[in-house]
Design a protein around this nucleic acid. Structure first.
Lengths: 141, 141
DNA sequence: TATTGTTATACTCTATAACTATA
DNA sequence: TATAGTTATAGAGTATAACAATA
């Protein structure tokens, strides 16, 4: 962007920390607007991609399996998810979003206006570049 | 990066969610290696830039002021920070990192190897580009 | 024997409300 | 009156350890 590279890894990590804080704050606020905690919102977001076993959920959210019990308990009590026995392994319970759960999850994403507006300040090509860079840093190994 | 833009805002937000999740996981693990919670690590990171009043800390970490009391209590008990009375306003307490607090904070950052290695896969120019894009999305308004 | 999910426990985080000491 | 920080409280997240059911 400039002729002189001015971004050492330390400064970039600092900015990443600030960016994460902004994103996470936006997400937490959006979840709170549906009376959900950030952890509950994260679980719903993961389940929006499809059903998952308790253990798999815990792995994805990088928390202990015992935590998932309470989180899913509270979401189930509100009718946002339900537990279903796995047909192939009777130890396993699959967690599935209900229709109301899908609605709430989509509402959370729609409410993340700060992040959305930030992204929409970029041109289509810059969004493409950001996508590619993030993928190289955080996804590919 | 390609001639055809393929990155709509929704997909980019999804990738952002995954990327920041990876960063947060890396940070949480690094903090845990120093026997600190993520919130404690975040507070130290903010204080690494310089002293801050309790209220200002709560604002930066977007949590209620009453939470800071407990978080700073625990950090102070471990000798990582200390409270100092403000010279200009006797209601205010400034929180300052101790030398040990600085050491621990730097150790956390040094431990974030997954993120660091991800960033170091980029050329200096690509790091510059990523810096500029993140700043435009999350910092400038 | 190993794994899945749950329970019990203890500690931490979080917001709300009420309090004090300042301003 | 308003603000900075603390305390009390209750609900939620978190890891550890132990357990029953199943593989």
């Amino acid at each position: 962007m400039t002729g002189t590279p001015r971004t050492d890894t330390g400064r970039l990590m600092e900015l990443l920390s600030v960016s994460l804080g902004a994103y996470y704050g936006d997400f937490t606020l959006a979840a709170a607007s549906e009376n959900l905690t950030a952890s509950q919102g994260k679980a719903l977001t993961v389940l929006r991609r499809g059903p998952a076993a308790m253990r798999s959920l815990a792995d994805t959210l990088t928390c202990d399996a015992s935590n998932m019990t309470g989180i899913i308990d509270r979401l189930e009590k509100r009718g946002l998810v339900r537990r279903e026995p796995s047909p192939s392994d009777r130890r396993v319970k699959n967690v599935v979003l209900t229709a109301e759960g899908e609605r709430v999850t989509d509402a959370i994403r729609a409410r993340m206006s700060a992040t959305r507006e930030g992204l929409e300040r970029l041109s289509a090509q810059d969004r493409d570049t950001l996508h590619s860079l993030l993928e190289r840093v955080f996804v590919s190994q």
